[in-house]
């Protein structure tokens, strides 16, 4: 049955270097349609670099990335966005001197039709009413949770066919983390496949259909969310249990 799922993203043996230092040493994995896939690992394991490599910010030196059947390995970041692969970066990266609405508008920069852009902003405000209440405020004045909603909303503006989320729970209070987890679940229920990078492994494994564990630029373990949750090594290293 699982063979029937289409592969949305196929990552094959990618290697990425920062200067001479290898950040990724040949990573391969898939994201299938309607899945939430998570990448776990400690700081510096290469999780963020994996996302940046996929979205074209730090292009791969070796290997191949296929998105919806198209080889995107060598495409510049802005052209990858046009294909519907949307990366919500670590630390949210809200344009702090631009208003909430302007941040959202830029999320749909590639859209030619301004009416459609305004319609999507309305959709985001319906999904996140708190952003609607603050639409004229500067992005930098929002709270951490609101900024994360804005970052996700900005990603949705582009009409994603795959969403890469980098540490959406970072620095947020537990209550807000739960809220963000609900949002991710809901987006996935609406049919958006998600590749989730998290330090908060508990949250990530609670959401994920499938997960990979990264260590110093290699994938050292993979399995379904439930398999990983009950894996002793994972429990010890990432779930803080015995």
């Amino acid at each position: 049955m699982s063979e029937m799922h289409d592969i949305v993203l196929k990552v094959e043996a990618i290697e990425t270097y920062y200067g001479k230092i290898a950040a990724l040493r040949g990573i391969s994995f898939d994201v299938r349609d309607k899945q939430i896939v998570t990448l776990l690992g400690s700081n510096g394991a290469g999780k963020s670099t994996t996302l940046k490599t996929i979205s074209g910010l730090t292009p791969a030196n070796m290997g191949k990335i296929t998105f919806l059947g198209e080889d995107i390995t060598k495409l510049p970041a802005h052209e990858i966005v046009q294909r519907g692969l949307i990366h919500v970066p670590e630390g949210r990266r809200i344009f702090k001197d631009l208003t909430v609405t302007e941040n959202l508008e830029l999320g749909a920069f590639t859209l030619k039709d301004d009416k459609e852009r305004q319609r999507r902003i309305k959709d985001v405000f319906e999904r996140f009413p708190r952003l609607g209440e603050r639409k004229k405020q500067l992005g930098g004045t929002l709270s951490g949770g609101e900024q994360q909603m804005l970052a996700v909303g900005r990603g949705l503006m582009a009409g994603p066919k795959l969403l890469l989320l980098d540490e959406p729970s970072m620095g947020l209070a537990p209550l807000i983390v739960a809220e963000i987890a609900n949002i991710i679940r809901q987006l996935n229920d609406e049919g958006i496949p998600i590749l989730l990078v998290e330090q908060n492994s508990k949250m990530a494994l609670g959401l994920a259909d499938y997960g990979y564990v990264l260590d110093t630029g290699n994938i050292v373990l993979e399995g379904s969310g439930d398999q990983l949750k009950s894996d002793e090594k994972v429990i010890k290293a990432y779930l803080g249990g015995e």
């Binding site: 979205s55 910010l57 510049p76 970041a77 802005h78 990266r93 702090k96 302007e102 830029l106 852009r117």
Partner: peptide, 24 residues
């Protein structure tokens, strides 16, 4: 205009602009 907003955004954060699909 969206171009003007992109200009202001680029002066704040170039990599994130690329993630918006902006040809910086």
């Amino acid at each position: 205009t969206i171009w003007g907003k992109a200009m202001r955004a680029i002066s704040l954060d170039k990599p994130t602009c690329r993630l918006m699909g902006i040809n910086v």
